[in-house]
Amino acid sequence: MMDSSTMARAQLPPQVGERSGEEHSLRNDQPVPAGTPERGESPKISVTVGDTRKVRTLEVKAAVENLSFYYGQHRALKNLTIPIADKQVTALIGPSGCGKSTFLRCFNRMHDLQPDTRYEGSITLHPDNLNLVGEHVDPIEVRMRIGMVFQKPNPFPKSVFENVAYGLRLRGVRNRATLAEEVEKALRGAALWDEVKDRLQDSALALSGGQMQRLCIARALATTPEILLFDEPTSALDPIATAKIEELISTLRDQVTVLIVTHNMQQAARVSDYTAFMYLGELIEFDEAAKIFTNPGKKATEDYITGRYG
């Protein structure tokens, strides 16, 4: 029942061609916001989602191909191939220990901080065809381009302002006016500005859990990442704070490609455009979220989302 074949096949290499009008109707149920900026240099990639459905053209921000990951001898991820669509929300679901977080952390090379870890395969970041897990690619460069929000809110024990400004300071921004402007922009982007604008110099640890998590999102947004990774961002939050974060993630898809790991099926259904279901380090099914949650192609997926195991 749990075969290793995947539903998703990204057809590579990229077909360079005109951006078709169809990509704006990727999801029938949700119109793509009109203001999405176009980036002419991005390659176009055809993605066949499922066997029976028509081919749609969309920009792929990152193409994961045959990705395997090893902790020492243990192979935690097995031959994953998933296209991550540009300016879309892709959710990773699956039972505990299935490798969702491990997969997510490949994108910003967090595993490199641990000894004895190894990647195989590739994650190609477009438009510049950078293999994120390539041996000769500097993990720090990768992390400067790909932001991450963690499971537990982890603001630095500094002021609200310094938390958001830190990423820019690392990049050498020194001008106070520029910093202030960018910090405000990031805080607005994370829907936190109105709540903290009078307490920018207060300790970030004085904020509530939900505010802290939005601060962490602002901290990541301030450096204008190309992909934003969320590792169960709401698992430590109450329902109201969770709703705010979910709403925020929905609005973020205008500016950034989002990859989110979640334990909460409803959350995945609510926020994601695409959903990947993983089990024991393998990709079981990848499809449009609407399809996964209403008419999954695999029995295992159906069992999981209906709560029969996991």
Binding site: N108, L113, M144, M148, F150, N154, L170, R219
Partner: peptide, 23 residues
């Protein structure tokens, strides 16, 4: 110092020395 703090700084692209001296 919680590891989560180090991860947050590394995640923003800090080097080891930056994580050490700033956090």
């Amino acid at each position: 110092v919680p590891n989560a703090i180090r991860e947050a700084a590394y995640g923003l692209g800090a080097t080891r020395w930056e994580v050490t001296k700033d956090h």
